[in-house]
Amino acid sequence: MSIASVLEWIESTDLSTAIREGALPYPIIGGIHLLGIALFGGMVLVTDLRLLGWAMRRRPVSDIVQQLQAWKWAGFVVVAVSGLLLAWAEPQKLYRSPAFWVKMALLALVGVHALVFRARVYGNTARLDVASTVEARLAASLSLLLWAGLIVSGRLIAFDA
């Protein structure tokens, strides 16, 4: 089965047609995606700024990272599910969009970032409460870059014909 036929099949599903052709589903799901970015994105920002020592310095790193973790996961699920639904509506257009592939590559890098830094930074905050490490600041800086890259590439998708 070729990729083209898979994309065609996705577009022919009822769900895809409903999102693409209904007046309300697409903007509503897009709105949820955007709200998720505001909430979840804001929490990622605050975590990174704390790791860099730029925000909330009165509080130990572990306080911020631990208390926001569950919320960040919830936000991630909201953004991912709404994003998947938006993609399901027009897979053929996305397949041709360079910005979409840049965004997917950046998402893969977010996964790599988690694998590399999870144990030593985000799961090791007791150590960071004593003193910041180069690793923690590197993790935060890279996270901020990936985060900004995801927003820019996501926005550019709409401008790829």
Binding site: I37, A38, L39, G42, M43, L45, V46, I151, R155
Partner: peptide
Amino acid sequence: FIGFAFSIGTIAI
């Protein structure tokens, strides 16, 4: 978008 993640994100917290 980055601006509102900063502002609305921190307000939401």
